[in-house]
């Protein structure tokens, strides 16, 4: 019980980067703090919150952030499962192949974001070069209906390895004799997958989903570098909007309001996801005991 003090440094650090900022935001969200006030906080009786309610751009960004997060996490789970199943197979040079699959995840998001900007470039990027052979220019990053898809693609490319590894851990935790028993029963490998792999993988799928959703809700680097939120704010995320408000418009009070509101909204969704995960876990374990 004397060992508890060893936790203190870690928790002081956590309090200073998580606790303190949240309290500061909560306080700041009830103050005007911008160039207009000489960058001094002045209480404004919830004007920030009122403004947020009527800020179409904020709600637009919320929808765009959710659209981005659900689309990329959905694809990541599907693709991650496929890659995990593949990497779980015995093969030659497995270590090297796993390394290669991990590389996208290890590279800095910003660096590859600019790489993607080059690949999707109009008219010089490879994609536009190819489509222009048949006379079409997609102008992907310049088109509000395509630009967000390019972002999703880049995000899926980068974070699928992470999802695949978590699912790989799940696959490795499934005892082999379950499959042997399943094959002995004469079931097809697809049936075994549906009756054994999927139910036992559910907790891992839930974990990967929760973790990735939480990260995707805070998407910032990728958007800022790849599209800058454009065209016409069509790819702007909540984090980027908060960033513009703070560092471009120097409106700290409103930026804090955006962040605390986003935090509450998004953590509600993550908590819901978590609850769903627990529900799935219970179902999963029931399927096993049956």
């Amino acid at each position: 019980m004397t060992v508890v003090y060893l936790l203190i440094p870690a928790f002081l650090l956590l309090a200073s980067v998580f606790g303190l900022p949240l309290l500061r935001y909560a306080w700041l969200s009830f103050h005007a703090d911008s160039v207009l006030t000489g960058l001094q906080p002045i209480a404004n009786d919830g004007a920030n919150w009122l403004r947020l309610m009527h800020d179409q751009r904020y709600w637009q960004d919320l929808i765009q952030t959710l659209r981005f997060a659900f689309a990329s996490v959905g694809f990541e789970l599907l693709l991650g499962l496929a890659i995990a199943l593949l990497l779980h197979q015995p093969m030659r040079k497995r270590g090297l192949i796993r390394s290669a699959a991990l590389i996208p995840w290890a590279l800095p998001t910003t660096v590859m974001a600019l790489g993607w900007r080059w690949i999707f470039n109009t008219p010089y990027g490879p994609i536009d070069q190819f489509t222009s052979l048949s006379g079409i220019s997609l102008n992907i990053l310049g088109n509000p209906s395509f630009a967000w898809i390019a972002l999703v693609y880049a995000d899926v490319w980068k974070t699928t390895p992470f999802v695949a590894l978590i699912l790989l851990a799940g696959l490795q935790s499934i005892p082999n004799d379950l499959y042997e028993a399943c094959t002995l029963e004469g079931a097809s490998s697809f049936t075994c997958f549906r009756k054994i792999t999927l139910p036992l993988l559910k907790p891992y799928l839930g974990l990967a989903m929760t973790f990735r959703l939480a990260q995707a809700f805070g998407v910032f680097d990728l958007v800022q570098v790849m599209t800058g939120g454009g065209p016409a704010s069509s790819t702007e995320s909540l984090a980027l909007y908060a960033y513009w408000n703070a560092l471009r418009f120097l409106d700290f009070g409103y930026s804090a309001t955006i962040m605390i509101a986003s935090f509450v909204l998004l953590s509600t969704i993550v908590a819901f996801g978590w609850w769903l995960m627990i529900l799935l876990n219970q179902r999963g374990s029931m399927a096993v005991t049956e």
Partner: peptide, 24 residues
């Protein structure tokens, strides 16, 4: 209890912290 707090922190989209960290 401590693990739950830590998982909560690990899930936090830390980008949202940049303004307060900048102030610090």
């Amino acid at each position: 209890l401590i693990r739950i707090i830590l998982v909560g922190c690990a899930l936090f989209p830390y980008v949202l912290l940049f303004l307060a960290l900048l102030e610090i």
